[in-house]
Design a binder for these strands. Structure first.
Lengths: 188, 188
DNA sequence: GTACGCATGTAAACGGTTACATGATTTG
DNA sequence: CAAATCATGTAACCGTTTACATGCGTAC
């Protein structure tokens, strides 16, 4: 198996992991943002194929600021939030990162599939129950996707930011169908 | 977001995570096994939707043995390996775990998709390169899947252990097609 | 018999998750 | 103005990954 290409280094000793890229990218798209802005934005978009807990979105910007990739502006009074913006170095780092395509593809890490793999220890009823539940979870996920699509309007459907959603839909449909088939006709 | 249902507790203070289940399940399927057996078995099957590093397969059996879910038999001379077998408690724990279907569905955690999401910072060439590379990675993954299928013979295709592979194939095909489309016709 | 690779194992370091904690704003 | 909820943040914990380390089998 190959080394993890999802992690790049920049300058002297700075790890750039998924969270770093999310933060740089989000600020790039949205302009100057507070951690809470990032949290909200991520929840509305990226989180449907990759949910990041909010705690990461508070720590990471500070790290990137110390490395000179973000600038920070503090608000006085009220919530006293910190607003981060891309520096020139930050933008450079972002586009450079985007120039290196990853060497690997996704891994499912799916508990339900693991259970199915060990399905020989399950009764037919248990297997069907598992399959129906999964299929329904995918159905509600698909509803969520649909509402995101309409919220963004069909017109801008073909944008790059929306492409991951279209992939998510196809995969969720495939999973829904798969589990439906298992539920209808459990393998021996 | 709901609590992580992939982790169950049994008895007093024993975490049952994905690795525990893999170990219990694999030993259930194969009979008494050494950690190396588990490693090899996992590589040939489960690893294509969930790769576990071998170091986990050495530590975990010992934990489970201490908890009484596995029995251990040491080999003298030669490699002096440790062979673990399911105890009655272990088998019970396994089937009990399998009776609780997970509450959540898979998350992609896919770097390439994250890059696509931030594709506004990429040139059309970079985007196409990313897409072609991903599509090819999925193609070779599909070849691997195909060889697994023939290795197991078409006859036992419809078994439960093989079902995850069929899902993997569908998903990989969906991803391959998706990236092919992006490569052929990059969104603006 | 020696060199190479396979098999086996351990543990430090890293990153992510969980849980807690608290001040700010809104609502009734 | 009290209560509830939103917004913000911190840090310990826990599992995974990475890296190292070394003994055994085998091929030449």
């Amino acid at each position: 198996m190959s080394a993890d290409e999802s992690v790049n280094k920049v300058g002297v000793e700075l790890r750039l992991g998924p969270v770093s890229c999310l933060v740089l990218g989000m600020i790039g798209l949205r302009g100057p943002s507070t951690p809470y802005d990032l949290k909200k934005a991520a929840e509305r978009s990226v989180s449907y194929f990759w949910p990041f807990p909010h705690s990461q979105l508070y720590g990471e910007p500070e790290r990137l600021a110390k490395a000179g990739l973000l600038s920070r502006e503090d608000e006085y009074g009220g919530r006293r939030r910190k607003r981060y913006a891309l520096t020139e170095a930050g933008r450079k780092t972002l586009v450079t990162w985007l120039q290196v395509p990853p060497d690997d593809i996704f891994e499912m890490h799916d508990m339900a599939v693991l259970q199915l793999f060990f399905g020989e220890f399950m009764t037919e009823q248990e297997l069907s129950a598992l399959a129906r539940k999964q299929a329904n979870l995918y159905r509600s996920r698909l509803e969520t996707y649909a509402s995101i699509e309409v919220a963004n309007g069909k017109r801008i459907d073909r944008t790059r930011r929306m492409a991951p959603l279209r992939l998510g839909i196809r995969l969720a449909e495939a999973c829904r169908d798969f589990w439906d088939e298992i539920a209808d006709d459990p393998p021996p």
